[in-house]
């Protein structure tokens, strides 16, 4: 489990030293506009969190099956039976903008 947790192709979560979190990159991926103050504060915090999780690497667990006891057996899912969905106006009611039963967003392709 430990090795898998963050070794999944991500640049931010690959093993790196605490001071090496690229907070600009992380913020850009997350579409967050962070101020210089926030970056200075959140960068080390994030590194600290990663370090904390990385303690898992110190556990010898190579021969332990991943979360075998808590695995979701097929029978723990749910049957394929429909339940009522939200009314369209309720679904749209949570969105900033909608029209004619559709969600409306700023244009997402380049003309």
């Amino acid at each position: 489990m430990n090795a898998l947790l963050f070794a999944t192709g991500s640049n931010i979560l690959r093993p790196l030293r605490s001071d090496a979190v690229d907070i600009d990159y992380v913020a850009r991926l997350a579409h967050l506009a962070l101020s210089a103050d926030e970056k200075a504060r959140l960068g080390p915090q994030m590194a600290h969190i990663l370090d904390w999780v990385r303690q898992m690497d110190e556990v010898t667990a190579a021969d332990v099956p991943a979360a075998s006891s808590a695995a979701m057996h097929l029978q723990f899912g749910r049957p394929d039976e429909p339940a009522p969905s939200l009314a369209t106006e309720d679904a749209l009611g949570n969105a900033p903008d909608g029209k004619a039963g559709l969600f409306r967003v700023p244009l997402i392709i380049e003309r």
């Binding site: 991500s10 931010i12 075998s68 695995a71 097929l74």
Partner: peptide, 24 residues
């Protein structure tokens, strides 16, 4: 296809809301 997205970095990580799936 020009993309407004960042170069693909999907930051995959295990879905914490679902347990690993085991099929017997």
């Amino acid at each position: 296809m020009r993309s407004k997205e960042e170069a693909h970095d999907y930051r995959y990580f295990p879905e914490p809301d679902l347990l690993p799936l085991e099929v017997t």
